[in-house]
Computed example of a mutant assay.
Amino acid sequence: MVWLSRALLRTYGRFMDDLRIYVKGGAGGMGHARLGGEGGKGGDVWLVAHEKVTLKRMKDRYPSKRFVAGIGANSSTVALKGAKGKDCEVNVPPGISVVTDDGKLLGELNKAGDKLLVAYGGMGGCLATNFLPSKGQVHMIHLDLKLIADVGLVGFPNAGKSSLLTRISHATPQIADYAFTTIKPELGTVMYADHKQITVADLPGLIEGAHANKGRGHKFLKHVERTKQLLFVVDVSGFQLSSTTPFRTAFETVVLLAKELELYKEELRTKSALLAVNKMDLPDAQEKFNYLMEQLHNPQDYMHSLPKEMIPEVAVRFKEIIPISARTGEGTEELMMCLRRVLDEEAEKKIEEYQKKQLRALHLSNV
């Protein structure tokens, strides 16, 4: 049996995944027409990714949410070339996309230390501008946080994702027997005997139509993009959101989850995935699991009975399918070892691809 120690990833109060802020580059300095002097350029506004920053802390610390760079110095008889205005550096959390109010993507900051210029300072006054300065850029921008985790738990409400996270990491998400218990992402870490750690994100449950932003659709799906590995979690007995919605078998649940990911972003079709079939401690679970395995191995024999709009264009190919019970712990250690193995294989694959790319570049440079 593999020894695992558990640790809860640090959290910072109420979770925020979007913050709208005002950024303004500094105005340029006045030129000196008589002496031909140039005013200093206005300061720029930069975003800098910092590990200890959260969007909530930013909001609390800067309630006005305004970030303005310094004004460029005027040209003078003492200094014909005016000094540049002071840049404004704004610390933000890693893992954010930066989007303007009109939807233009300015860039992303994926890791600590990344920098992004979001508002240029204005030009200083010079001969070309009749010695008049220009104003700095102004933007209202959204800091859109997308979690970066090794593993993202994907499943409909009440599939047992929160219970699974509790079991493998001693995290303490809210758990109850009704849909939408999880309303914010929960993070946990698992440490292996060799001190290797993986981060696991329990993401808010999605529903049919999530790709069209039903329920918490887009808030859920944007976090899925930033996980290395997907772990589908389904109830072996099936799922029904409410008395007014259709009952879905475990097989239909898998198909629907795949379709929602595909409709949101086609690239998610090829993301590495595993399947955990939960609640194996319930009566008749083994019989239902065996039937699900038959359906997954021969999907073409069962897809014809489903509505066309439910069927994904590309069938999900799971690297592993593991029966578990998050309540009793059955199968969870095997699941964690599968996650570890798949993540290691993906890392090795990327290293090999990088080495091949370097060798090709070296070969071409020697031709």
Rank of each mutant, 00 (worst) to 15 (best):
I207C: 06
E309L: 12
Y178E: 07
I141M: 12
M303S: 01
M336I: 07
Y178K: 14
L55N: 04
P133S: 05
E186M: 10
G121E: 03
K350Q: 15
M123N: 14
G188V: 03
L165P: 02
M280K: 04
K111S: 11
D301T: 05
E260C: 07
T182G: 08
A33W: 12
R327E: 13
V53Q: 14
R167T: 02
V342P: 01
Y120A: 14
G136C: 13
L55P: 02
V234M: 09
K65D: 01
F131I: 07
S169M: 03
T77H: 13
F247P: 01
R6Y: 10
R57E: 14
V190W: 05
G329R: 08
M30P: 00
L117F: 08
T270G: 03
T199W: 06
E287F: 07
G205W: 01
V45L: 13
E267K: 15
E252D: 04
K356D: 13
L80V: 10
R216Q: 12
P94G: 04
G188Q: 03
G72R: 02
K279A: 01
T249A: 04
N74R: 14
I148H: 13
K146P: 00
H32D: 11
K56N: 09
K81I: 09
S243N: 12
T253E: 10
K84P: 00
M30H: 14
L261Y: 02
I324Y: 02
M123G: 09
L4Y: 12
A119N: 09
N91G: 03
G155W: 02
E353F: 10
L132E: 14
G113Y: 12
L203I: 15
E334G: 03
A361M: 13
L147G: 05
V23Y: 02
D202W: 11
L364A: 10
V92A: 08
T11E: 15
D235H: 11
P94Y: 08
V200G: 05
Q355D: 11
Q355E: 15
L263Y: 13
K65E: 10
V342I: 14
L362P: 00
V53C: 07
Q286T: 13
S242P: 05
D60N: 10
L241W: 07
K265D: 15
K265V: 00
Y120F: 13
T100L: 12
N110I: 08
T249I: 04
